[in-house]
Design a protein around this nucleic acid. Sequence first.
DNA 1: CACTTGACTTATT
DNA 2: TAATAAGCCAAGT
Length: 118
Amino acid sequence: MSKPIKHSEANSDFFDRVYQVVRLIPEGRATSYGAIAKYLGAARSSRLVGYAMNGAHVHNDIPAHRVVNRNGMLSGKHHFPPHKSMEQLLSNEGIVVADDQIQNWKNVFWNPEEELRL
DNA sequence: CACTTGACTTATT
DNA sequence: TAATAAGCCAAGT
């Protein structure tokens, strides 16, 4: 059997998996694109994670604000709506953000490989 | 159908 | 330490 391809929807398994992981991020925590990518088995596809986030806005259960780059910097804050900025959402969960960067990032970092522990 | 861009990361110079 | 190159995959032009 080959693959059941839909003709109007891209069978982007990657994106769906990214969304699944992002949904699992607990409140008050955050993770990085690379961590998710690595968890999915493609550490070098971290760009896809970010790109997936770009399409995440159509989903309502994707806390994209909990996903930042590996430095804990809010690289995607410019893609958030003005009334609910990334920094505001994070701060709302108890995460301290200063200068577009998560403070105590090492502590806030949520590693799916460790937390989900396969 | 080919080329460019993108919310990244790692390795190399 | 900073700058550059390469790698990954999808969507847009």
